[in-house]
Design a binder for these strands. Structure first.
Lengths: 226, 226
DNA sequence: GTCTATATACAGATAGAC
DNA sequence: GTCTATCTGTATATAGAC
């Protein structure tokens, strides 16, 4: 009963949401071949339509890309802000931010992959906006690292660099993740969190802080609020 | 006296290596706009030639890309193999492999960036070969991690994943490095090595192994052999 | 070695019938 | 809402003069 849009449907047999099919086709092709490597003819064919019909469901090719990117980054950014506001312990902040990032990059693998890969294809205002979003997101990571350094639980001579390195490590997940891999997703998230704590030499009372020492909400907790 | 190619030059005043200029132009454009986002007209213009003249200096557009990629990965792969053969301590192995990777990704930033970014644009035999090279290189990283785990100095439940995460972290350098940054390149390499040792929880006699504890050749030592 | 001119295919996008 | 047909520009690549 998730009736969101009031637009009436024709009947029970209606083929379901063509717009979604277009977006899905574009996403898969952008992920596999890149934005510039994908033609609108490819998208049309994959969606089972003619190119002219495509334009009934989208503005233009660029719009598709912007939608994908903002849809990938904005929720992650919002969730990171929530973690910083809600969690106090820097180790918990960093671990949770890492885990939800890995979670999202596994669950929405193609979307995050395109988002992390095709910034070059953007121009003008869209590019500026997406870059601003990315910067804001990176700032949240840096904030978590700086909090830890400030409280003396992390060690980092250059929190901005450390944060970027952590981010790029965790982002890599979208390049290879498969649900059929050996590791359960929650376990994978925890691995990345533990690696991150190791990287920043997280220590309390002279002992390394391990992921297993922390009690955290589920990886998607702060993602599923908005 | 590095007289490699016997091809005689016309005179002292000869305008220097047009082929190099073509490759350089292609590299910069591929890095900025992506392979499919770059036309041969762009390359020709950047090299100060007409498109027809380009084909005097290259096979086709694809060849340019393959050259860039193999030229980026092959030396790194060779250098990693040398480290594994030459260094005994797993901590030294891992640190050195990380440092030379970071070194190369900073020094040859555009080439490694394109190489890490445009595999999607390859097809057929070229793709197969480049992927094989990449796999071999990743294997060297995994080998270093496994050596450490085997000797009880590293901790990793999934060396293949750990190695990949380390690799992706260090690869990120090519996305942002600038020689005008605050950190000297050697220091940056050392940072990444130290982070890596932290990630794998490198420990000897109950104490964490730090980069500063290791005595290593310069980052480019094993790169400059071949 | 460099050019002009061009072949041939394909790009993104739209007009307008149904 | 979907189509056929097509506009217009650009893509990679080559032929052949100089």
């Amino acid at each position: 009963m998730t009736a969101k849009r009031g637009r009436p449907r024709q009947a029970a047999g209606e083929s379901e949401n063509t717009g979604e099919r277009v977006r899905r086709a574009a996403l898969e092709l952008f992920a596999r071949q890149g934005f510039h490597g994908t033609g609108i003819r490819d998208i049309a064919e994959a969606a089972g339509l003619k190119t002219a019909t495509l334009y009934h469901y989208m503005g233009n090719k660029d719009d598709l890309l912007v939608e994908i990117m903002v849809g990938a980054i904005a929720p992650l950014n919002a969730a990171a802000e929530r973690v910083l506001a809600d969690q106090d312990d820097p180790a918990a902040q960093l671990a949770q931010i890492v885990e939800q990032h890995v979670w999202a990059h596994a669950r929405d693998r193609l979307q995050t992959l395109v988002s992390d890969t095709e910034v070059r294809a953007l121009t003008g205002k869209a590019r500026t906006e997406v870059l601003a979003l990315r910067d804001a997101y990176e700032s949240a990571w840096r904030q978590a690292v700086e909090n830890g350094v400030g409280r003396g639980v992390f060690e980092s001579g250059a929190p901005a660099l450390t944060a970027r390195a952590l981010l790029q490590m965790a982002t890599g997940v979208s390049h290879w993740f498969s649900p059929r891999g050996p590791l359960k997703l929650e376990a994978l998230c925890a691995e990345y969190a533990d690696w991150s704590l190791g990287m920043v030499r997280a220590t309390r009372e002279g002992r390394p802080i391990r992921r297993a020492d922390l009690v955290l909400p589920r990886p998607d907790h702060y993602l599923s609020v908005g």
